[in-house]
Amino acid sequence: MTGALKKIIYNCKQATFLIEKRTLGKITAAESLQLQLHLTGCSICRTYQKQSTLISRLFTGFQSNELRLDAEFKLQLQQRIEKEMNKN
């Protein structure tokens, strides 16, 4: 293995970058191979990858159904709107 290739394959910063880019965009065939090789040998980045996916899932799956504006804020909002309406 050449020194340059070795350096890339063992670079976790680059590997985690490629993990993000692969998930949401495109990476080249060469990058994909590098990443594959890296992940085969690096359990820390495999953990990262798993957690990265989980974070995206948690973010998009955020449950907002139960969220409500409080009554006082709504009342103020209502009054503000009515006041503006009466101006016209």
Partner: peptide, 28 residues
């Protein structure tokens, strides 16, 4: 220099079941 994780910052397993709704809610 080499792009390796520095030990104190390297990812460690959260040690949770990804499908447990209670834990996911807490993590969320």
């Amino acid at each position: 220099d080499n792009g390796h994780w520095n030990m104190q910052h390297s990812p460690k397993a959260f040690g949770l079941d990804d499908n447990d709704p209670m834990l996911l809610k807490e993590l969320g």
